[in-house]
Write a protein that binds this DNA or RNA. Sequence first.
DNA 1: TCTGGCACTCGCAGGGTTCGAGTGCTAATC
DNA 2: GATTAGCACTCGAACCCTGCGAGTGCCAGA
Lengths: 338, 338
Amino acid sequence: MSEDRRRAVLHAIVEGYVSTSEPVGSRALADASHLGVSPATIRNDMAILEEEGLIAQPHTSAGRIPTDAGYRSFVDHVAGQALQDPHRRAIRTFLSDAVDLNDVVERSVRLLSQLTRQVAVVQYPSLRESAVRRVELVRIGTDRALVVVVSADARVEQSTVALGMEPGDDEFEIVARDLNEAAVGLTPAPLIESLARWVARPGQPIWAAAVADAVVAAAKGGTVRRVVFAGTSNLARAGADFESDAIGSILDALEEQVVLLRLLHEMTGAGQDVAVRIGAETNSEALARTSIVAAGYGPTGETSSLLGALGPTRMDYPGTMAAVRAVARYLSRVVENE
Amino acid sequence: MSEDRRRAVLHAIVEGYVSTSEPVGSRALADASHLGVSPATIRNDMAILEEEGLIAQPHTSAGRIPTDAGYRSFVDHVAGQALQDPHRRAIRTFLSDAVDLNDVVERSVRLLSQLTRQVAVVQYPSLRESAVRRVELVRIGTDRALVVVVSADARVEQSTVALGMEPGDDEFEIVARDLNEAAVGLTPAPLIESLARWVARPGQPIWAAAVADAVVAAAKGGTVRRVVFAGTSNLARAGADFESDAIGSILDALEEQVVLLRLLHEMTGAGQDVAVRIGAETNSEALARTSIVAAGYGPTGETSSLLGALGPTRMDYPGTMAAVRAVARYLSRVVENE
DNA sequence: TCTGGCACTCGCAGGGTTCGAGTGCTAATC
DNA sequence: GATTAGCACTCGAACCCTGCGAGTGCCAGA
């Protein structure tokens, strides 16, 4: 069956190019791989693969390199790979020492960047739906307030609210106390009702509505979905894979966070454990020569947040996928127990 | 006075090299600058400057470039420069829209990176000494607790404490309530006393001490001194100034934070408004080809935190210094009013 | 102290050549 | 029909050579 061999040839090209970063030719491929055919045969297969748009040659007298479509085919047909044992141990020891949520996220992102040798990205875990334990309202200046919500699962959310007027201190204190009473112990669903009643009370100032909104938002899991990176230096090290100023654009895109958040969000849908976007599939000019391997994580049942690795299209997909998958699993477990 | 002219020559060399990034020769210098002397004279001055170690030539038949010492001399003798007017306006509009502390820091660091076209670094402002407004103790698992301290100046600090045992729920609740009573309304000095008495109460569990420590630490301003960056892409864009893999090392050093924090800390001492470290003065291998311009900021009287810009030694020192100074001033003002 | 002149150095850019990896095609073979 | 060996061809990378010119240091004269 020549189709099987063609696939083998494609895979060999991908692996060869990934490890040497040089176009791979028919002879080298025939020598190194264990498909027992001659270079000429491989050349024929290559011609077909090229027709199918899976490989290309940078210039006439060079070997072949995979196209985005070639990588895609490779990724889709590669069986999941087990993580190397030392890596497995690294994950366990690395994450088990974490002291709080920040620390967990911080450690995860570093770990992931080390395992993959790519830029690692971890989105902060979203809160689970949990009861409000305490609401604190603190005055800032004359016309703003800080809302702090401590939830029963030990997370702290804060946000600032513009009051739109300057209430008296007494009034402010009373509202703060009432608010706490109206909110404590409730999970989001009843909380919303309770606060709606609270806002509607006769004599309640207008700004109570804004405060209530902030409390609800915080209880639901906060509004901000921050993202942290590590390993940006790996980008610089892979310099040869990018045009001169592409690295700058990529770093900008990362700092923006917007592009990345959109992309991670889009990748959730698929539902498989690990999702991969290759090159132009990122739909982002800056990231056109990069690939992203991402996975969801979170308490069982809901994969509420994402983490992933970003690197040049010429990356070790099986290895990266294994690492991303493994870190996502461990992180899920940690988040679960917190 | 030939010494004055030598200095002028040095400054012209620095300015020329900074703007063109090419070694500057005697003729070009004679043409462009308005010291009315011939190239030959300038060559003589150059010979002396080179003897003094202030300039060097990359190779025999090339112009001169400043050494670290040359930049140092330049920086020390340059009068403070005023910030350009559009920049001044940019700072005002940019920072005035900020809604909370995070936002202020976030905006500042972006702004600074845009103004300087370098990597900007801002250390989170330390808390002022302020009274505790509320302490919340939340249980995590069975043997740990989350301590949340809301201070009167509207900041929220949290940390996790290992209890070392598994207290009963009732006991835990009582301790939490007592703790709050013992702490509320106190500034650090009396707080420490009050909590010491509280810990010593008969029947108080052992873990109360650990909790008390956490509260004090939080009230004093938190233990972590985080640093945020922006504009790392500017490093990549200045690629020509660095050897191939130097950018990677620099990014690593930034992510580490340790090196940077030490460095910023060292720079505080000097007491002038803006401090500059050039090349090898950073005492860091990774940063050997970079310079840092830093300034302290904080409420009047105490410059409690630092911010700065980091870039290749070949940077526009006067411009960068002006921008750093200006942002530090505005930021001080903002922190003051919060 | 400055300047003009001059001989000298040396990196860089351009052009030509060689080398070899890799290809596509065709004809022979399994 | 699939595979292979052979062969002519292409074309980028590396190398060498050369000329150019920017820049220098030094010396003698103003």
